[in-house]
Design a protein around this nucleic acid. Structure first.
Lengths: 139, 139
DNA sequence: ATTAGATTTAGAATTATTCTAAATCTTGTT
DNA sequence: AACAAGATTTAGAATAATTCTAAATCTAAT
């Protein structure tokens, strides 16, 4: 069935982004902060009232595996999702919980150094600065 | 109400290190991998059969706040605890889930750079290398 | 139209963690 | 030693985050 395989793959690729996955992706992309699954569910329901919680989780996992979004976890509470998939770093505010994106170019070198040190085959490196954001710092 | 148990030594009493907190700290320190709260509970029960789950969590929080252990969270599942409190980095294996400690001296500079970039008042910086450990890398 | 396979749905189940209220322990005072 | 105030522990309930289940629905290929 080699002849059919090609057509199937093309079609599958096209249709695998179902309506609900599309909506979930839109919600994550449109969000100005990095939403939790619960927040995505809430917003997704506005665009697709029948969507279920499980589908939001399934879609988030699908989109993550497909490389279209990133999952971010730090200390307390729920995972957050990020539509910015190019490599970047995060800063978390211990005062208000705000999560900010930034990019340190040094991390490319750093990943090599870390891989050398640990003998791991590197896939990615995550750097999180913890501290007080400009609004919360008292000094 | 006879005293069935010896009193703690003076140092422990002074620092609020109760018997259960002491046991929890020992378990985390003795563990060769970074245990979850559930694993700590299991081991702690062997040394102090009446200890409760809530006390394990309370103790872990107490020890964390006291700076005696660190809490580590990455992507999936439960928090893990680490008795190595000096600043260091982690590498997680996507194959077997192994978590390895290492230290990159470059991170001191990095925290400054990150703080400059984000205008955060830095408290700490966390770096996690994700990849395949020596045992899991196929090449 | 039929079938196979994937996806969605609602809700149950599971896992991780926190909360509650009563019991117990510690410490300081008498 | 007795006593009270305050901290800690305990068991279990409660909550939060996430995954699982099984039936219904959709999609693509016959």
């Amino acid at each position: 069935m080699a002849a059919h395989r090609k057509a199937h793959d093309a079609a599958a690729r096209k249709t695998n982004l179902t309506r609900q996955r599309e909506v979930v992706l839109e919600v994550v992309t449109d969000a100005e902060h990095h939403p939790t699954a619960a927040e995505v569910f809430e917003q997704a329901k506005k665009r697709l009232p029948t969507i279920s919680y499980a589908t939001v989780y399934n879609s988030l996992r699908y989109l993550k595996d497909a490389g279209l979004i990133l999952e971010i976890t730090f200390g307390n509470g729920a995972s957050r999702y990020d539509s910015e998939t190019s490599r970047h770093d995060h800063a978390v505010c211990t005062g208000c919980g705000k999560l900010v994106d930034f990019d340190l170019t040094e991390t490319v070198e750093l990943m090599r150094a870390a891989a050398r040190r640990t003998h791991f085959k590197p896939a990615s490196i995550h750097l999180t600065l913890v501290g007080l954001c400009p609004d919360c710092r008292s000094d």
